[in-house]
Design a protein around this nucleic acid. Structure first.
Lengths: 162, 162
DNA sequence: CTTAATTGGATATATTTTATCCGGATATAG
DNA sequence: CTATATCCGGATAAAATATATCCAATTAAG
């Protein structure tokens, strides 16, 4: 069970987009260089973020991406759902209905106990991700970083946003 | 992020093995028929369970699989770790060290805030799975099933275990 | 001792998911 | 109007997962 690289990449990228001035944008190529990741693949991930309403895009020269809403309204779950999809990891195929001792469909009123247990575990996982906002991640990062490093990032963003 | 089908299959199978008499075993083919799943692939999953010490196997005629320990000493996390592997779903590739504003390796004393948030969420997921034993699943299943259904399974197991 | 049933392990194939590339559409600036 | 920068979405390649096959090793029963 692996989460795609896109989740890591786009989460980091959101923290960069977060310090952009209003209405400005940064191009995929610039973001790809900033983290040294393949720009072609990143471009696809950014489209997933846009379709999920997490970022907004502007086409043409001078265009690029920016966050579509405030950092405290974007959770890690939002990003995971956008990039990795909202499909639960555990897929119940109802094998309790199979074979010589299989239950009849009409007798399966309650959900399978095994599926229920896995769903419950996934729910606490999703709850934990939903409780973590981009705002809180940025606050933690700010506390753990040196002023020079933060300044460097701000300057880079200022240059790229033109 | 998908969990393989083997996790669902082997969890159900453990609940069947749980009602076996001591020292008896059931063959992979019989188990595959019981749930109508491909026996060749199931055989591979059962070997993973054996290597993890969850089931024990006996070779040769009359052989088969049985649980290697008590149902209250087998958790859903044990099964997931055996079949799916213990690798965390989120892989931190330390991209904060990349690019023009990358942190130097020696400045990365604290873990990346993003990786830490995902790890924490995965930990609560694993904790939830670890807290759910095969024993508790079987208890729930017993309460939700009709006596006839339970009897049917017990009879099938008795026949297959010889 | 021979035969049948079974796990063990390696290997091959198909399907699905993940990662990458490329041509076209769109917008800006000169 | 042309050149350039940028996003958009489908096509392609690589990797992981799922499935099937084969044969050797092991054990029990006749």
């Amino acid at each position: 069970m692996q989460l795609g690289k896109g989740v890591e990449w786009t989460t980091h990228i959101c923290t960069v987009l977060a310090i952009l001035p209003e209405q400005a944008g940064i191009s995929v190529d610039a973001l790809a260089e900033f983290f040294e990741v393949p720009s072609a693949y990143l471009a696809k991930q950014m489209q997933l973020l846009r379709r999920a309403g997490i970022v907004a895009s502007v086409r043409g020269k001078g265009g690029g991406y920016r966050l579509a809403r405030a950092v405290d309204a974007i959770s890690l779950l939002d990003i995971v759902n956008a990039i990795d999809g909202p499909t639960p990891a555990f897929r119940c195929t109802e094998i309790r209905q199979n074979g010589p001792c299989g239950l009849k469909r009409e007798d399966c009123t309650k959900p399978c106990e095994i599926a229920a247990a896995f769903s419950a575990a996934e729910q606490v996982y999703r709850d934990a991700l939903a409780a973590k906002s981009l705002a809180s991640i940025m606050q933690e990062a700010a506390m753990n970083s040196s002023p020079e490093h933060l300044l460097g990032i701000a300057q880079w963003v200022g240059r790229e946003a033109g």
